[in-house]
Computed example of a mutant assay.
Amino acid sequence: MAADGGERAGLGTDEAVRAMLLHMPRVIGRLKRTPLPERLRSARLAPRHLSLLAYLLFDGPMGVGELAERLEVAPTTVSLMVSDLSRQGVLDRRADPADRRRAIVALTEEPATREAIERWLANGSAAWRKAFEPLTPAERALFVRTMQTYEDEAARGDLPGA
Results as ranks from 00 to 15, higher is better:
139 E>M: 11
91 L>G: 02
103 A>S: 15
152 D>P: 01
151 E>H: 10
1 M>T: 15
39 R>V: 15
71 L>M: 15
35 P>V: 10
39 R>D: 10
142 L>Y: 12
103 A>T: 06
52 L>C: 04
21 L>A: 14
31 L>Q: 14
37 P>R: 11
52 L>W: 00
8 R>W: 01
58 F>E: 15
5 G>L: 12
45 L>E: 03
108 T>I: 03
60 G>L: 07
120 W>D: 04
90 V>A: 00
74 A>L: 10
109 E>F: 02
17 V>W: 09
109 E>R: 10
119 R>S: 13
135 L>D: 09
95 A>I: 04
43 A>Y: 03
135 L>Y: 06
122 A>I: 01
69 E>M: 06
34 T>M: 13
152 D>R: 14
120 W>G: 00
100 R>N: 10
24 M>W: 12
25 P>G: 06
49 H>G: 03
34 T>V: 12
91 L>T: 01
81 M>P: 00
130 K>T: 10
135 L>N: 07
140 R>M: 09
129 R>K: 13
79 S>I: 00
124 G>R: 07
116 A>S: 05
144 V>H: 11
77 T>K: 03
149 T>L: 14
61 P>A: 15
148 Q>E: 15
99 D>F: 04
132 F>M: 14
96 D>M: 07
115 E>L: 10
161 G>T: 08
54 A>F: 08
47 P>C: 12
113 T>K: 05
26 R>S: 10
11 L>F: 04
66 E>S: 06
